[in-house]
């Protein structure tokens, strides 16, 4: 009886030590959670989530102040990835923050631009080039499509155009295969 208790306690003690050691030894030195959330967000910096950029939104999620379904540019995939990371259930995009749209690109109508620099100040990623009173243009490869430059333009010369598919961006599509009977 006593022997059994001693053996069992010894075993428990040893396993406890092992577990404790493992916890210290193999501790995961992960990024802080904010970085991980920020890595999932699309970095469009559009503010549709209600925060002034992706990082503040990430901080809000981490702090438990914001839900995971407020980023329209991230779309469903983004929400699923966030849910995965945080161990929650995915949910549909909250419609009050916007809808999923195809990615767009801002184009300045160079004939009408008066060079007011207002759009430059609005652009979160400095994707617009131009000096005061000179025509401005958008660097297509840098534009995130956030639309923040559209409203400030006093002469309405910025258009959001859908990104056209070219040979270099074209993708093979998911095969269409029907297993269901034609209804």
């Amino acid at each position: 009886m006593i022997a059994a208790i001693v053996v069992l306690s010894a075993l428990a003690g040893v396993s406890g030590l092992l577990l404790g050691f493992a916890a210290v030894r193999f501790k995961v030195e992960g990024d802080p959670i904010v970085d991980k959330i920020d890595a999932i967000l699309p970095q469009t910096q559009c503010g549709q989530c209600g925060y002034p950029g992706c990082r503040p939104y990430a901080e809000a999620i981490a702090a438990g102040e914001a839900d995971i379904n407020q980023c329209p540019p991230g779309g469903e995939n983004g929400i699923v990835a966030l849910a995965d990371l945080l161990g929650r259930d995915p949910k549909p995009l909250s419609t009050e923050h916007g809808v999923v749209k195809p990615k767009m690109l801002a184009v300045v109508d160079e004939q009408n631009c008066i060079g007011c620099t207002l759009c430059i100040q609005a652009c979160p990623v400095d994707a617009i080039l131009g000096a005061a009173k000179h025509m401005h243009t958008v660097i297509a490869s840098e534009c995130t499509g956030c639309e923040l430059c559209v409203a400030p333009c006093p002469v309405d010369c910025i258009d959001m155009v859908p990104i056209t598919q070219t040979i270099t961006t074209w993708k093979w599509t998911y095969p269409v295969v029907t297993t269901k009977a034609a209804a």
């Binding site: 970095q43 979160p124 093979w172």
Partner: peptide, 24 residues
């Protein structure tokens, strides 16, 4: 082919997001 293209596109997207993050 579909899977490869998707992976490339996602990789591109990620790099673009990273660029936007840095620029922001």
């Amino acid at each position: 082919r579909y899977a490869k293209n998707e992976i490339w596109a996602q990789e591109k997207e990620k790099q673009k997001a990273e660029l936007a993050r840095q620029r922001h």
